[in-house]
Structures are given as C-alpha cells and as structure tokens.
Amino acid sequence: MINMIIQINLIAQQVSMADTLRSEGKIYVVVIIFLLILLALFYYMFRIEKKIDKIEQNKK
C-alpha cells in the first residue's frame, strides 16, 4: 500500500499539467467568463420564476 502511494507520487512529478495556462493568468479569464454565463443563467431563471408568480396570482 505504502509502496503504491510512493509510486503514484513518483509518477505525479512527471505528469504534465496546464501550468503555462496558469502561470500566464489566462485561467482567470476562463473562470470569469464561465461565472458570467452562470450568473446570467441564474438571473434568467429568477426572471422566469417571477413571470410564473404573476400568472399564479392572476389565476387566484
């Protein structure tokens, strides 16, 4: 078990990750754009809900 963990750690040191993207700081652009889309979608959901609220009140 310990042997396996050491082996995995050894492999891990050679694995290439997206370090360039991170060092250039471009990853923050990705995150900000994704957040913008997500928040816009949530805003849209809340607006749809408000419309349903209105229709429900009119029906009562």
Binding site: A12, V15, F34, L39
Partner: peptide, 25 residues
Amino acid sequence: CVFLLVYVTIAGFLFDVPALPILNE
C-alpha cells in the same frame, strides 16, 4: 444552489488537483 455552483466553478478550475498520468487536467 447559486452559492454552491458559483463556488464550484471557481474552485473546480482553480484549486489544486492530483497530477495523474493520462487524466492530467
């Protein structure tokens, strides 16, 4: 839900993950 998903997008892209062969990022 909004808070968790906002947290997940930030943390999911920025937090450290184990570096494994084949899987990479």
